[in-house]
Design a binder for these strands. Structure first.
Length: 434
RNA sequence: GGAGAGGUGGCGGAGUGGUCGAUCGCGCCGGUCUCGAAAACCGGAGUGGGUGCAAGCCCACCGUGGGUUCGAAUCCCACCCUCUCCGCCA
């Protein structure tokens, strides 16, 4: 959510940033609402102050036994009650209206974010590894002989419909190894703290990380009102909602491995084969809570953590900075990591690392108290929040399988996974670990 | 699921209708004292909003939302959460 004071102080800058995201100027509408709201607040508070004064006089009259004056004042106060109720309701309504409006406006891109309409205009900033030269036509993951016995879409369809998968045998073991490997690396080498969180959350959490109010149709809700998280960004980030943190505890760098649930509404026909895009998938997520002056450095750090995973897995990838037209609702800047998928002969998104600045913190009311200095401090300020995949486990499995496939139908597995697989180094063409 | 207890400021803990935004203790910050520190003493200190150049003033907040009343942290209703015991259970 945006800071109304910042918009008030510099509406032109606000509108200019909005236009970079392809939105028309909103500050006139916002400022009009804001002015109206403040006028209503003044009216309501003035009336309330008068009543409070009168009430004290009533009490005083009663105390000195002046019954006539007591009754006169009492009637007066009683009369103004309805007026106050009306004014207060109006002020509240304006407040809600402004909040609703601000809630629906996306975050503003940082100056260094490239302008652009869509993903075609993202800017590559880093490339690692060289795609293997195949002396046979590389297959997509679900067509590799070694994989086929362990990736069962028919059974999943029987159970749940399309966009689900049943994994078995060697394939799920590699999947599990991947998640463990990612977590262990983040914990031991990157200094992140592992968390285990609910995957069912209340409305408030979904508002905090921007899923609500605009993107309700992208998530699933239970009959009693809980939401299934589309990413553990929701639980990790909202873990500090409403808090006033001591600056000394920042930055807080977390990671979690959870199931994620997405309806994929609007993605009909997109990536329908294989397990690239599922309703249910696993992700190792990273979330950082930090001070606003450190968030850019923290974002680079987080990106490096994600890149390190791909490098250890020996998967060629490239990193892009998303252009204004491709950024998510809450992001100020986003790096996407795209893994090389030989079966598709292209790079596909496997991680997205975003800083939201104070955007989510304002929604969640998550603050920190800056250490006192001569110049100030000591006052609560909103924290900055960042989130990134570290990585999407299912997509990472795809990348490992496609990049490791051999002419004979087997798959060679990256060395860092061998310890997690009892020393086994490959999946044979008939689907066995060996 | 059943029974009971409880939700007050960073923490502990008072407060059952009228200057209570809230006694007190601890912790915290500033000062006095000290070579320095501790102790002691003095003083300060919540959050959000509105208004104002500012000092300040005003409004709201004692789990949440309603209600009663001239007036509510205090009374009433609903809900949420926590704890204890019992039951069930991965």
């Amino acid at each position: 959510m945006h800071d109304i004071k910042a918009i008030r102080e510099n509406p032109a800058a606000f509108d200019a940033a909005l236009s970079r995201r392809g939105l028309s100027a909103l500050s006139p509408q916002i400022l009009a609402l804001d002015a109206d709201r403040r006028a209503k607040i003044v009216a309501a508070e003035t009336a309330q102050a008068e009543q409070n004064r009168a009430s004290k006089e009533v009490g005083a009259a009663k105390a000195r036994g002046d019954e006539a004056e007591f009754e006169r004042l009492r009637a007066l106060v009683a009369q103004s009650k309805a007026d106050i109720a009306r004014l207060t309701a109006e002020a509240d309504a304006q407040d809600v209206a402004l909040r609703d409006l601000l809630m629906g406006i996306p975050n503003l891109p940082l100056p260094e974010v490239p302008d652009g309409k869509d993903e075609a205009e993202n800017v590559e900033i880093h490339r690692w590894g060289t795609p293997r030269a195949f002396d046979f036509p590389p297959r997509e993951h679900f067509e590799i002989p070694a994989v086929k016995p362990g990736m069962d879409f028919e059974t999943a369809a029987k159970l749940s419909g399309s966009r689900f998968v049943v994994l078995k045998g060697a394939v799920i073991r590699v999947h599990r190894a991947l998640a463990q490997f990612m977590l262990d690396t983040h914990i031991e080498e990157h200094g992140l703290t592992e968390m285990w969180t609910p995957v069912l959350v209340k409305d408030d959490a979904m508002y905090g990380t921007n899923q609500l109010p605009k993107f309700a149709e992208d998530s699933y809700q239970t009959t009693n009102g809980w939401w299934l998280i589309p990413t553990s960004e929701v639980t990790l980030t909202n873990s500090v909602a409403g808090d006033i943190l001591d600056e000394a505890v920042l930055p807080i760098r977390m990671t979690a491995h959870t199931q994620c649930f997405r309806s994929e509404a609007g993605s009909a026909g997109k990536d329908t084969s294989g397990m690239l895009r599922q309703h249910q998938f696993e992700k190792v997520e990273m979330v950082t809570i930090c001070t606003p002056d450190t968030h850019l450095a923290e974002q680079d750090r987080m990106r490096d953590c994600a890149q390190a995973i791909l490098e250890k897995l020996e998967i060629p990838y490239r990193t892009v900075t998303l252009c204004t037209g491709d950024m998510g609702f809450g992001a100020q800047r986003t790096y996407d990591l795209e893994a090389w998928l030989p079966g598709q002969n292209t790079y596909r998104e496997i991680s997205s690392v975003s800083t939201c600045g104070q955007f989510q913190a304002r929604r969640m009311n998550a603050r920190y108290r800056a250490a006192k200095t001569e110049t100030g401090g000591g006052k609560p300020e909103f924290v900055a929040t960042l989130n990134g995949s570290g990585l999407a486990v299912g997509r990472c499995l795809i990348a490992v399988l496609e990049n490791g496939q051999q002419a004979d139908g087997s798959v060679l597995l990256p060395a860092v996974l061998h310890p997690y697989l009892g020393g086994r180094t490959k999946i044979t063409a008939d689907g066995q670990l060996a």
